[in-house]
């Protein structure tokens, strides 16, 4: 055994360690009493699953209204689980999600309050808000067909054509773990019924797709030659075009003769237990009106309010028909979509 004694210097270092521990515990317990201390500043607290480019938007809101925005980012389902567990104690006044199904699931769980606002009703089309006005879309994103402008001159024009055998081994798709994939299939089910939707998903799977869990990386895979076509959200191409306007990827609006391109939304709702419902409503109304352009432009998205002009890059994509009627159904159909994807062995 090794020598041990009372006078061992290491014993001192261990007692030091323990004292440090005490200090840490004490300071940890005292470190979070800031929330309501300063009642002079007005505050609104946001849980947001959308975390790209929101900071400048909140800063602008604070500059205009003097209301401070405190927010935490995370994944939609985890933030929803937290909100649900916190109940009446939640600090969250507003919850913001990156897709339609997740906000609808929050509403279904009874976490969102009805907002009776003429401002919101007139700014946001009725298809893009909940029937009971518990949530409101703030921006629109389209899931479209992307193709290599160098190697493809006959890009598919419908979601069904993506399953044409000629794309075997040339197709990139996002895994079914991602809400964008789930919502797309929900929309197919809503428009075509389960059987036809299943047939389409089967034909995609039969094309031996390369599954990449990132829309950006799918587009880069098209550039690198790893695949020729992909299904991705419109704003990712917008983002890449901002960096390099010559990127050889083209966008095709799908199903223009039919139900239109799959439309998903970024949405927000006020929580039932909001401590600052007035400020939350001000933020929500601001985002739906004055803040619409900034909110959408920072992420190259289409504003939810159709009267607000999209940015130049998006205007360059031209006009299109979008599947606006499915948006409210995406939450309800999500479990069916997940089951269909599993049954079809979609990765």
């Amino acid at each position: 055994m090794r020598a041990t004694s009372f006078r061992d210097p290491h014993l001192k270092s261990i007692s030091l360690l323990f004292s440090l521990a005490l200090v840490a515990v004490v300071s940890a317990c005292g470190g979070n009493s800031d929330s309501e201390s300063d009642s002079a500043t007005r505050l609104v607290t946001v849980y947001t699953g959308r975390h790209y480019g929101i900071e400048p938007v909140f800063e602008e809101f604070t500059a205009e209204t003097g209301i401070e925005v405190r927010f935490t980012t995370g994944s939609d389902p985890e933030l929803r689980a937290r909100l649900e567990a916190e109940g009446a104690n939640t600090p969250a006044d507003l919850i913001m999600t990156a897709d339609a199904a997740n906000i609808a699931l929050a509403a279904e769980a009874g976490l969102l309050a009805t907002v009776d606002s003429e401002t919101l009703r007139s700014a946001i089309p009725k298809e893009l808000r909940a029937a009971d006005n518990t949530w409101f879309a703030l921006s629109r994103r389209l899931r479209v067909i992307m193709s290599s402008s160098e190697r493809v001159d006959d890009a598919p024009t419908t979601y069904a054509e993506v399953g044409d055998p000629k794309w075997k081994g040339r197709l990139c798709l996002r895994p079914s773990t991602h809400p964008y994939t789930q919502s797309l299939v929900s929309a197919l089910i809503n428009n075509l019924g389960s059987d036809d939707a299943r047939a389409i998903v089967d034909s995609w799977v039969a094309n031996d797709p390369l599954y990449i869990n990132s829309d950006t990386d799918m587009l880069k895979a098209i550039v690198a030659g790893d695949c020729d076509i992909a299904l991705a959200n419109s704003y990712y191409l917008g983002r890449l075009l901002t960096e390099d306007s010559t990127i050889p990827v083209s966008l095709t609006w799908p199903d223009q003769e039919g139900f239109g391109a799959h439309l998903n939304i970024s949405a927000a709702g006020i929580t039932v237990n909001a401590a600052h419902p007035k400020e939350a409503r001000e933020l929500l109304e601001w985002l739906a009106t004055k803040g619409q352009k900034l909110f959408s432009d920072t992420n190259n998205e289409y504003p939810a309010d159709p009267t607000v002009e999209p940015n130049e890059i998006l205007s360059g994509f031209g006009s299109f028909k979008a599947d606006i009627n499915s948006v409210r159904e995406l939450g309800r159909l999500n479990p069916a979509a997940v089951e269909l994807l599993s049954a079809a062995s979609y990765e």
């Binding site: 300071s27 940890a28 979070n32 309501e36 916190e86 009446a88």
Partner: peptide
Amino acid sequence: DRRGWLPDGFLLVGSVA
């Protein structure tokens, strides 16, 4: 947190502790 045992409405969720 729902039991409200902690003083000053201190909430454990979202705290360093």
